[in-house]
């Protein structure tokens, strides 16, 4: 299998060593797989996502992206834009931008994409997420589920190979959760990418290919699901069969 991310003996300490958030994490994320990162609050899940997503720097250890060190990838912001997508627990949309502008914003610095193409991609994703009718609504004026779907559309607009999601289905209803999981599965298949989802939700763990359990900054188990549940591509949020 083609490994997209290799994490080697990763440590992260805060407050001059008083808090050891990660304690020797070694992990490989392979193309075409969804990983569920599970564990109690404070076990280091979000820290690991942040480090893989280049939002923070490790105290020691290394992370390879398709075999390359971070200092070999060039501009960090461009790398983040093109290679990594983020879905945050509380959506974190920009409140003064409309939903479509929020989705487009992740492509804004990509000068290879025209404004029309950017708009088209954003609208298409919003349509797939069932929130096209909210495209021109401000992020602050729509429901929590709609915001979370908007945040996922924003994370996917660049077709990133690595999608990092921190509790993407927290605080949203089961119907929306199913739609989001289906979309994430489709994305992995389409891009041959990988998704790492930090979650407490057993439904997500069930559809993941690999369940990684963490405790006190360490990985305590890695379980491969034999038959991860696939979701039909025909289903949409408006389809009664869903």
């Amino acid at each position: 299998m083609n490994s997209l991310i290799e994490v080697k003996d990763l440590h992260k300490v805060y407050d001059d060593g008083l808090i050891q958030s990660l304690n020797g994490i070694t992990l490989t994320l392979e193309a075409g797989k969804i990983y569920a990162l599970m564990g109690s609050s404070g076990c280091g899940k979000s820290t690991l996502l942040n480090l893989i997503g280049t939002l923070d720097t490790p105290t020691s250890g290394e992370i390879l992206y398709e075999g390359k060190h971070l200092d070999e990838v060039g501009s960090l912001s461009t790398f983040r834009r093109d290679f990594i997508g983020f879905v945050f627990q509380f959506h974190h949309l920009i409140p003064v931008l409309t939903l479509s502008e929020n989705v487009e914003s992740a492509l804004l610095s990509n000068h290879d994409v025209t404004a029309a193409e950017r708009r088209e991609r954003a609208m298409s994703l919003l349509d797939e997420m069932g929130i096209l009718h909210r495209a021109e609504s401000y992020a602050s004026k729509i429901s929590g589920g709609e915001r979370q779907r908007g945040a996922i559309a924003r994370a996917l607009i660049n077709n990133p190979k690595v999608l990092l999601a921190d509790e993407p289905t927290g605080n949203i209803d089961s119907k929306t959760t199913k739609l989001i999981l289906k979309k994430l599965r489709n994305h992995v298949e389409k891009t041959s990418g990988t998704i790492l989802i930090a979650t407490h939700d057993n439904n997500i763990a069930a559809i993941a290919d690999v369940q990684i359990k963490m405790e006190d900054g360490k990985i305590i188990s890695v379980e491969h699901n034999q038959l991860p549940r696939k979701m039909s591509n025909k289903n949409t949020i408006n389809n009664p069969e869903f």
């Binding site: 912001s77 983040r80 834009r81 093109d82 983020f86 920009i94 804004l108």
Partner: peptide, 16 residues
């Protein structure tokens, strides 16, 4: 500050 962090996370450059 949070907004600045989010924009950085989704790939906005410092200049932007």
């Amino acid at each position: 500050t949070k907004e600045v962090g989010i924009l950085s996370a989704i790939g906005w450059s410092r200049q932007m």
